[in-house]
Amino acid sequence: MDYTSIIRDYCIIRDHHVIRGDQVVFTGDKSMPPASFFTEIYRHFDMNYPKFYKMDNLCKLGFLAAELLLKDKNLQHSDTPYETGIILYNASSSLDTDRNHQNSISDQAAYYPSPSVFVYTLANIVIGEICIRHKLYGESTFFIEKEFDADRLYNYVKLLLDDNLVESCIAGWIELDSDHYDGVLYLVEKSPSVTNGIVNFEPGKLIEIYSRRS
């Protein structure tokens, strides 16, 4: 277990801003609903992944955060893709799409449940979308918490690293409930030695990053 675990990078999508490093890299119009803002981000960063348009808002948020987090990066151990895990949390599960599905069945005269909506009524679909996009076969779990809990995230991801179940992990908070959204993803990795400018993986650092505002 002779290694240091580091937060190699992070991405925040919140309050009509996209934050990378210490910088706001994109700002959207404050009046925009989440779906339009997400499409703006997709276009601004010139992403080419048409499946994006089929996703529900929770998946769009997670997809965009992962896309920006992993941009221009080689994941460690890319020859063994199951060594990168994804551990996500949120408060509202897939409730936003649950409401859409429920609306489609609430009136027996207009009963039209759709498989393309129903499939998104599970919180972990966003993990599936990120895995498909980045060809990740590793450990993954979606947990529910009332609010971001740095200790819980740290303890579980640290366990996965210590047990050599993952070598790196995309972890964070991907929350969406109607017009409210909050996406924070960290890329956590094992590092053989301590290098300058690297942020150690610890609960305090997770909170410091999570609390960053534009």
């Binding site: 599970l122 993990i127 779990t141 529910i144 009332k146 819980r152």
Partner: peptide
């Protein structure tokens, strides 16, 4: 909200920690 189910169980069983919820 599933975190609310967790809090209800914490109260009912007087658990020290709030339950972990896995929804996968």
């Amino acid at each position: 909200y599933l975190w609310n189910s967790a809090l209800l169980l914490q109260q009912f069983f007087t658990l020290f920690h709030k339950p972990v919820v896995v929804s996968n």
